[in-house]
Simulated scan of single mutants.
Amino acid sequence: MEGYRILCVDDDINMLNTIEDILINTGYSVSLAKSGKQALDFIRKGIGYQLVLLDVDMPDMDGYETFREIRSLEQGRGVPIIFLTAMDGADFEIKGFEYGAADYITKPFVKSVFLARVKNRISTPLRQKDIQTDNYRKLAGKLTDLELKVSEYIAEGLSNQEIAEKTNYSYGYIKRVVSGILEKTEMEKRSDIRQFLKGE
């Protein structure tokens, strides 16, 4: 994964060091921030991250506030953000996705699953920075990061089961995500999403 840079934000130094070791040994470049403020300083410098791993429970500026501030910066608008937290209740996860998070990973995590989900968020076949079509931008304005990613996979011809396997979600959950995409975009079927993104 040479060339991919990830920003990790957590007030727990031990957790930061653990994540750094895992990611560097996998070939990623990593920046570490001990607070939301420090994370914002990194992003303002224009380093160009492909992913942000963001803890929720932090002093002064929590993960949700940090998320909003990152999205308010021009350099941070298109960067996928994954909440990485020990807060594992369904309400917290739902809140994370409502904010527009690309994913929500709870600590402690299984290393192999963690790496699979990280890889999935930065190496999907369609990326906004690579595919600059009007239709893609219109869709990106309506959907969360996860919904947009599922739309990308649909455009590539993947079934719900294949998408579930790639994203490490259940088939039922992906089916609900697809239904939500259709409802938000006022489309009738999966093929409409494919045609819209492919410009067919």
Results as ranks from 00 to 15, higher is better:
G3W: 10
G3R: 13
R5I: 03
R5H: 11
I6G: 04
I6F: 08
C8K: 01
V9I: 10
D10R: 08
D11T: 06
D11C: 07
D12T: 05
I13C: 04
T18Y: 11
I19W: 05
I19C: 06
D21S: 02
D21N: 07
I22H: 01
I22Y: 01
I24E: 14
I24Y: 05
N25D: 14
N25V: 01
V30F: 09
V30W: 10
S31K: 12
S31F: 14
K34C: 06
S35V: 07
Q38D: 12
L40H: 09
D41S: 13
K45I: 02
K45E: 15
I47Y: 10
I47L: 14
I47F: 11
Q50I: 00
Q50W: 03
Q50T: 09
L51E: 07
L51K: 11
V52L: 09
L53G: 07
D55L: 01
V56A: 08
M58S: 11
M58T: 09
D60S: 10
D60H: 01
D60T: 10
D60F: 06
D62A: 08
G63F: 10
G63A: 12
Y64F: 15
F67W: 11
R68I: 05
I70T: 02
S72A: 14
E74H: 04
R77Y: 10
I81N: 06
F83N: 08
L84K: 01
M87E: 14
G89W: 02
G89C: 08
D91H: 00
E93S: 11
I94V: 12
K95T: 13
E98G: 12
Y104G: 06
T106Y: 12
K107M: 07
F109Y: 15
F109H: 12
F114L: 13
R117P: 05
V118L: 02
K119G: 03
R121W: 00
Q128T: 04
Q128W: 01
K129H: 05
K129W: 03
D130E: 14
Q132N: 15
Q132K: 14
T133V: 07
T133Y: 02
N135Y: 04
L139C: 13
L139V: 15
G141Y: 12
D145P: 03
E147V: 03
L148D: 01
K149V: 02
E152R: 11
I154Q: 08
I154K: 10
A155Q: 06
S159A: 10
S159G: 09
A164S: 15
K166Y: 06
K166M: 11
K166P: 00
T167G: 08
Y171P: 00
Y173C: 07
I174L: 06
R176K: 14
S179G: 08
S179P: 00
G180R: 01
E183G: 00
T185M: 15
E188C: 01
K189Y: 03
D192C: 04
D192N: 12
I193Y: 05
Q195Y: 05
F196M: 14
K198M: 15
